[in-house]
């Protein structure tokens, strides 16, 4: 499994990915990345960098090298299964159209 962003071997400070919750009730969304020596500083740097204009009420940071991503080369196969399974979506069911509360 590839671990995206793990180029930090020669870099002094590792790379961190930043996720910001813009307001209560919403998910944390990827905002960008930054460099920091450790998680304590990473979360502070994230606050200083990504919330200068009231963009957030909560911040997550995760070391980029700790992220496990799906394999880009297997993209076609990996995401093939949902294709053709339209019955997972409400729009597939046309006969009940017009019936209230359905």
């Amino acid at each position: 499994m590839p671990s995206p962003g793990d180029s930090g071997a020669r870099e002094q400070w590792p790379l961190w990915e930043v996720f910001v919750r813009s307001s209560r009730g919403l998910s944390h969304v990827h905002a960008g990345s930054l460099h920091a020596p450790d998680e304590t500083m990473a979360v502070r740097n994230a606050r200083d960098l990504y919330t200068r204009r009231n963009e957030g009420v909560s911040v997550w940071v995760v070391r980029a090298s700790d992220i496990t991503a799906s394999d880009p080369d297997a993209k076609g196969a990996f995401f093939e299964s949902p294709q053709g399974k339209d019955f997972r979506h409400a729009i597939y069911y046309t006969k009940s159209e017009g019936v209230a509360h359905l």
Binding site: P2, A31, D73
Partner: peptide, 16 residues
């Protein structure tokens, strides 16, 4: 917030 609506981590390409 910016318009990123899904969490795509900035990732370093390796294979290509």
């Amino acid at each position: 917030m910016v318009t990123t609506t899904h969490a795509t981590a900035t990732a370093t390409a390796t294979a290509p």
